[in-house]
Design a protein around this nucleic acid. Structure first.
Lengths: 210, 210
DNA sequence: ACTTTTGTAACACGACTGTGCTAGTACCCG
DNA sequence: CGGGTACTAGCACAGTCGTGTTACAAAAGT
């Protein structure tokens, strides 16, 4: 047969077909048949690339995580911690349609991972990576006086806020627009800065900031 | 046959059977057959109480929301806004096993509601109610000087934080214990109070209005 | 006592599921 | 040119799915 595309490219195409089915019809409709039809392949052909449906789903989930991580890795460096946090968080939120798709797929897999052992490890990996990222952001902000010094508490708060915003964006994309999501994050970063400086005001006598 | 229980009681028992199946095996396993077996009924008998599977699922979701709302309505009044917020939020978080179950079921339904029109209205109802509750909490706190005055922004922040914590608790119940969840909420309320008092200092010293 | 309603169970139907298996086709390499 | 590999397609099997229908027992209403 024509080896017109690489096998790994085919697998990526199939992962994207999974995403489209999940977004349009839900994860419960992402059967082998439906995904094969969505990709324009026979299901026998699909099973040449993925031996089982579980393997297909795990790959589709893994690819979502890889995309997000590679996008973060490709960001140009930003020395200012506040601007860096703002941009990293903007990269993590579903601000455009591509990331909206990733976010909905991520939510579907996250929900299923509660009872699906095959997806649990991947979900935990994404969770840990995101938490680590939040922790470094908070640490850097705190070092610059732009966040309180209770690193674990502020990490938990930022991480939960981020996932909560993502869930809300998936639930109500009409209400949570790209602007409102970005504004929510900016508001939280402002609040962190205020708290961070408050603590200094209290310890010293009185400092003016602009 | 013996009318040993009321019909509405039977429906509630079936809703609870739905929850058990969802928690144990996932929403995709909550078929008519599995739920009937879980409840100890034949599926013909189940369909006497629910004409379709969709009706069963909607009722099971509706019952979750009703439970939460009735629990909130049964709370004894608390005049102090900070303590009231703390207790309301503690009532909303999955701190014991009953609410952990509700939370997992809520997450499963929320995820499915993205593509299931029958569940969407219910999900939106729960979302709106929770947001309204957050808004009144923020409004009361702000009036008492225990939160910043930007009500919409703080409502959004509290609401997202709350749902984010709930998602995290469902994802990682081992990490997010009842204590850590309560601590996260208490931390946020403390932070709001700090900001609330800070803004008053600022507006007095050099008036920063739009 | 009779009828109606309510509850329970069981079966059949068509559709869909994941997976195993078979056959055939096009490509690459020796 | 021959053989092996990669790829595609299709079918069969044993399940499960939601739903419709039928039958039957027990309670309620008259």
């Amino acid at each position: 047969m024509p080896k017109v595309v690489d096998a790994t490219v085919r697998r990526l195409e199939l992962a994207e077909a999974v995403w489209r089915v999940i977004r349009r019809d839900g994860l419960e409709q992402a059967s082998v048949r439906n995904v094969a039809r969505e990709a324009g392949l026979s299901m026998g052909s699909l099973r040449h690339y993925f031996a089982s449906q579980s393997e297909l789903m795990v790959f589709a989930f893994r690819t979502v995580i890889d995309r997000i991580e590679s996008r973060l890795a490709a960001m140009e460096p930003e020395p200012d911690p506040r601007r860096r946090a703002q941009r990293v968080l903007a990269e993590l939120l579903p601000l455009d349609d591509e990331r909206r798709a990733e976010n909905e797929v991520w939510l579907a897999f996250t929900s299923r991972a509660i009872t699906d052992p095959a997806l649990r490890a991947l979900r935990d990996e994404g969770y840990d990576a995101l938490r680590a990222g939040c922790q470094t952001m908070i640490t850097d902000l705190s070092a610059a006086g732009l966040a309180p010094t209770d690193i674990p508490a502020e990490t938990e708060r930022l991480h939960s806020l981020l996932d909560g915003l993502a869930v809300h964006a998936a639930m109500r994309p009409d209400i949570h627009t790209a602007e409102s999501l970005a504004a929510a994050i900016a508001h939280h970063l402002d609040a962190l800065a205020t708290e961070g400086s408050t603590r200094r005001i209290r310890t010293r006598t009185h400092t003016r900031r602009t």
